[in-house]
Amino acid sequence: MEVHCAGCAGCCMDWTALLDDYEADRTRQRGRFADASDSDSDSADSADSADSENERRLPFDDDANFVPLTRDEVRTVLDRGMAAAMTPRFWRARDEHEAVEIDGQQVAAIAGRPAFFIGLRKPPKPVAPFGRTEPNWLPTCVFLDPTTLQCRIHGDEHFPAECGAYPAHNLELGQETECERVEATFGDDRLLDDQLSDGELDDGPLLGSHAIGEKLFCHPRPDDLDGVIERLEAGSLRPKDRAECIAVASASSPGTLAISEHHYETGKTRAMAAMPSAGGGDGGNSAPDGASWVGPAITEWHKRHDAAECDSGSTPSPDLAVTVEEDRGAPETPGWKEREDEAETRTE
């Protein structure tokens, strides 16, 4: 598999705002990453159910390319003081037989426990992908450098496996890739070779019951999620909402519904300690002592975006990321360098 990533990062942002209303709606409904929620959210008895568009579970959030993290990745991000980078995804139930009611909504569940992913947040950032000359505010992965359109943790030992494998899982499942969607919309060749190597085939996506406790998490106390689904749907999750879900994920046991109370309590304490806290929400501007750059940067991106919306001003240069992220300690990215045989490409 070979992909041409330079100047793209389409899989790292939600670029539906660049489409007309009809195409944007189709893209959101379709999803981008091979979101295996249709299989993952089933019980062991029905893990192989059909994955048709009519049966697809719709998430309560509107992230068109949500990237799920594994339990160990959640723990790693938590240990590095970056809990503010993570957020949950819950789904609408297909029918009442798999549902738990929360905030008046039918939430997909396994054995009466609401099922969810933990993934990376996408604050608004000024970016100019796909050869565009003017930047736009787009929901962009917390770790993406708006200036170079490169991941700040690519090559890091803690780089998420789902990101490293993309778009192999889509190809293996026969789903359209983000590369192909970018090609169809903006031109340029992005998916240069869609043939998967033996190694890429061996590292397939976690599906069905194998994902429980490893990538698909189940909350043991639905009542503790009161208000969370409503705020998730409205795009107004609070730090404590994220911390609750992160704690459950970090305390999960692969292959089972078991939760370690010790890991839950420890995880929740660490998650809350890493969250911007003033005002109890994402609008807060204070950060705990020793916190990473992530939380304060997310808060500032939201503030700058909201101010720009109110003032109807022009979108700032992506170089603003130097002030918002790098001056707070975010690792720099190398930029794209022309190479004789594989200019601006990445081979998996």
Rank of each mutant, 00 (worst) to 15 (best):
H4V: 03
A6M: 04
A9N: 05
C11A: 00
M13I: 00
W15E: 00
L19M: 11
D21Q: 01
Y22C: 02
D25Q: 12
R26V: 09
T27V: 13
R30M: 09
R32T: 15
D35F: 10
A36T: 14
S37P: 03
S39T: 15
S39L: 15
S41D: 11
S41F: 15
D42L: 07
D42N: 09
A47H: 09
D48I: 04
D48C: 11
D48S: 03
S49T: 12
S52I: 07
E53H: 05
P59F: 13
F60Y: 10
D61R: 07
D63T: 10
N65Y: 14
G81E: 08
A85Q: 08
A85I: 12
A93C: 07
R94D: 08
E96V: 03
E96D: 13
H97L: 04
E98T: 12
A99R: 02
A99D: 04
V100P: 02
G104T: 14
Q106S: 15
P114D: 09
F116L: 13
P123Y: 09
P123R: 06
P124M: 11
K125T: 10
K125M: 14
P126F: 06
A128W: 00
G131M: 03
G131L: 01
G131F: 01
R132T: 03
T140L: 00
L144N: 01
T147E: 13
L149F: 03
L149D: 08
C151H: 02
R152C: 12
G155I: 12
H158Y: 13
P160Y: 02
P160L: 02
A161N: 02
A161Y: 02
G164D: 09
G164E: 01
Y166E: 02
P167A: 06
A168I: 00
H169W: 08
G174V: 07
G174N: 11
R181M: 10
A184H: 01
D189C: 01
D189A: 09
L191F: 03
Q195F: 00
S197L: 05
D198H: 10
D198C: 06
L201P: 01
L206H: 02
L206R: 02
S209N: 04
A211T: 05
F217N: 05
P220F: 09
L225F: 10
D226C: 04
E233V: 03
G235A: 10
G235Y: 06
S236V: 07
S236Q: 10
L237H: 09
P239W: 05
K240P: 03
A249L: 05
S250W: 05
A251I: 09
S253M: 08
T256Y: 10
L257C: 07
I259H: 14
H262M: 14
H263E: 15
T269K: 11
A271L: 08
M272H: 06
A274F: 06
M275C: 08
D282H: 14
D282I: 15
N285S: 14
G295E: 09
P296R: 04
E300W: 06
E300M: 12
W301V: 04
H302P: 04
E309N: 04
E309P: 01
D311P: 03
G313R: 05
S314Y: 02
V322Y: 14
D327R: 15
R328L: 15
G329T: 14
A330V: 15
E332P: 10
T333P: 10
R339I: 12
A343F: 03
T345N: 13
E348R: 14
